[in-house]
Computed example of a mutant assay.
Amino acid sequence: MPTYEYRCERCGTFEAFQAITESPLQACPTCGGPVERLISRNVNILFKGSGFHVTDYRSKSYKDAAKKEESSVGSSGSSLDD
């Protein structure tokens, strides 16, 4: 469920977890005063796992070049521990 931010004239700002289909709050849950829904800066986007265009839909030539580059860097024999 998304988190929405509200501002109460008496209590200040607070967050509420609501379904997208729910209508916005009209009253503060603490004091019952009028509230205003704010534009939230909370953008918790998690990119994990496969399924992203950049990693999953690269051309075959790009993937082959990346493998070749990876193998040449790995076999060069240079070490950072020296």
Rank of each mutant, 00 (worst) to 15 (best):
F14M: 04
R41A: 11
S79H: 14
R37N: 05
A19T: 08
K63L: 11
I39H: 15
Y6E: 06
R41Q: 14
F17V: 11
V43I: 10
R37T: 03
R58L: 14
S79N: 14
C31I: 03
E70Y: 12
T21L: 15
P24G: 11
G49Y: 01
N42H: 09
S72G: 08
K68W: 03
A19W: 13
S23R: 14
T13R: 13
H53Q: 07
S59P: 07
K68C: 02
Y4T: 02
C31L: 07
S76Q: 12
M1W: 01
S59A: 13
L46Q: 07
R7I: 02
S50F: 00
S76K: 12
I20D: 15
G33D: 10
D82N: 15
E9K: 10
D56H: 02
H53W: 09
F14D: 02
R10E: 13
A19D: 14
D56S: 08
V73K: 12
P2G: 07
S71D: 15
S23D: 11
C31F: 07
P34F: 03
G33S: 13
F14S: 04
R37G: 01
S23C: 08
F52W: 10
Y57A: 05
F52G: 06
G49K: 02
E9F: 07
V43S: 15
D64S: 12
E15F: 05
P2F: 03
R41W: 10
R41T: 07
T30H: 06
V54Y: 05
A66M: 12
N42C: 03
R37P: 07
Y6L: 01
G32W: 09
K67D: 05
Q18H: 08
S50K: 06
